[in-house]
Design a protein around this nucleic acid. Structure first.
Lengths: 342, 342
DNA sequence: CTGTTAGCGCGTTCAC
DNA sequence: GTGAACGCGCTAACAG
């Protein structure tokens, strides 16, 4: 047989600290001390017990450890399925955010409990919180759940929310300044000499309405008065259909601001179908700066949100809350990324 | 004050079954029986205790419950960061899969523990499994970790893997027939009269090599011998750079099969930049059928994987394993979706 | 430095 | 139908 310890026959599967204690001929607490590294212990016995644990493929049971420590070791990431139940996680923005959050939480030693929740009852968040499955929660997207979030925040502090800041909210939000983002898009389109505009993405999601508001408020009255406001469904396919229909009806704006890059990409596609040249006939500005926006045809001018930075700030804020610190909401400034669609 | 129980002042926060037992003036086990619904109990006392629990906003502590029941109530979804550490979760294919898995697990009453793991040591999966943080694991993407998976599978059965089937694997895989998928792409390009081909996506990921192999093996010798094989990095941006470079060097195939839709979209973009007309001068076939492929310009012809079906099969297979059943690997046939890029 | 004891919050025998 | 007692696997005083 091999001398490689990994492939050596395992004498017996050890499932608990107690069994290992018997094998090592020490008390249970000594094993605990050896494996956790806490408390004081003779280095020789510590090494011996650790070797024994390795040999028997034993690790501390995290669940039991957590129960004893009064924690779960997990942070919940909640995605309320608000306006459109279908495809939130398919939006590259969400998944990118989720990936960065996962990495940040791992860095802090927490597991990530992912939950897509259907906000069917007004106390869904309370129910989740009271179930005690996580030590804290990150809610991605307020959707239309501001009231629920505020209600829970009154008695549960280990909560941070990604979204549009709003002084009326009783909870900490980390997000981008969507109003300013909209304004940036408006100024850019005007700087390109565009006068006949449209906004794609009218919605009840607060992020989207803020982008819309910032955009419209920045336009001079005459331009704004003829700016078309187009509601957009959340799936790329449906969004494409709306855009196609829009052009088919003869609408020919020379500039469109889209509330997300996915919408913008569907507009680019519909425009190509309709024989509209981008950016010559039509300038298109997106929002988010997802990775794919760089390989759109043409590459998309967009209002960039710092997704990675936002994810880290979300996690850091929550960690500080867990540590008992006071945490303020934060609102990052988005930045224009000019590519070839304008 | 309102009579609404939700907004009524809560007499006191109850944190354990024991406290509620005192309030209800019954024993701990009676409260347990009332709240779990198990065991026999007078309906009146059951209702009374449940009302009391509601009133005090009390729910059973899931962690303690799970410890007692010898389970965790969570299934781990593991994403090995294999070839490219950066952006796995940003690939719409992964995130879409993840979303469907989340929904399926929720339907079975399980939480989803998400973990992006860096396979830095050969026993990373053993370490995870032995930590006891989940009742089972779904690994998305074998990457180059086949040996690790096989090793763990020898002593841990609650494991299913998304990926390319391989009889040599000692574990259950659910996936698509990538070889057939590659063959489908080859036949389609030939049916379109294309003779000068290229494959974009050479890699060590088994899924990609299988697509490559199925593609090449289907081509007649003369065509295959002049087919260019292009390695592709995993980020859209880098992939776009490679494609641009490819065209800049004067390569002008009339058909390209890409190992993923994201690669295909970067090819479409690079081709547009180079003044190459799709599909007239160049036919492009992708793989996956992500949502965005429908709004590419032009909409992408692609080899479709049933992501939702795959996710459900992954979860169902794991559930059956947990129930002690024998489970076979499964390999779904991909289907060609013809759009306008060919 | 190490062992003994007492729980973390719950489910489940076994009595009554 | 209900209560008392025990233990899931672990950590943290308190002794010695």
């Amino acid at each position: 047989m091999s001398k490689d310890p990994a492939s050596a026959a395992r004498p017996k599967t050890v499932r608990s600290i107690a069994e290992l204690a018997v094998i090592a001929n020490v008390s249970i607490s000594t094993v605990s001390r050896a494996l956790t590294g806490k408390g004081s212990l003779n280095q020789a016995t510590r090494d011996r017990i650790r070797a024994l644990a390795d040999e028997h493929g034993f690790q501390l049971n995290v669940s039991a450890q957590n129960l004893r420590l009064g924690r779960t070791g997990a942070i919940a990431v909640l995605l309320p399925l608000g306006h459109e139940r279908g495809q939130q996680l398919s939006d590259p923005f969400f998944s990118s955010m989720l990936g960065h959050i996962a990495d940040a939480l791992t860095g802090h030693g927490y597991d990530l409990l992912l939950s897509r929740v259907l906000p069917d009852r007004p106390d869904w968040l309370d129910v989740f919180v009271r179930s005690g499955r996580a030590d804290g929660a990150i809610v991605i997207g307020q959707s239309d759940q501001g009231a629920v979030l505020s209600q829970t925040a009154t008695h549960y502090d280990r909560l941070v929310v990604w979204g549009n800041p709003n002084p009326a909210n009783g909870y900490v939000t980390i997000g981008s300044d969507n109003v300013t983002g909209g304004a940036i898009a408006a100024r850019h389109l005007m700087a390109r000499g565009r006068q006949n505009l449209a906004f794609f993405g009218a919605s009840t999601a607060p992020e989207f309405t803020a982008r819309q508001q910032g955009f419209l408020d920045t336009l001079p009255d005459d331009i704004r008065s003829r700016t078309k406001i187009v509601p957009i469904p959340f799936t790329p396919e449906a969004s494409f259909a709306v855009a196609s229909q829009f052009f088919a009806l003869g609408n020919r704006p020379d500039g469109i601001f889209c509330a997300s890059d996915v919408i913008a990409m569907s507009v680019l596609s519909a425009a190509a179908d309709a024989g509209i040249k981008v950016p010559q006939d039509l300038a298109v500005v997106g929002f988010d700066d997802i990775l794919l926006s760089r390989i759109a045809s043409p590459p998309l001018t967009t209002v960039r949100q710092d997704i990675e930075g936002g994810a880290h700030r979300l996690v850091d804020s929550l960690m500080r809350k867990l540590a008992g610190e006071q945490v303020e909401s934060h609102c990052a400034s988005p930045a224009l990324v000019v590519r070839e669609s304008t």
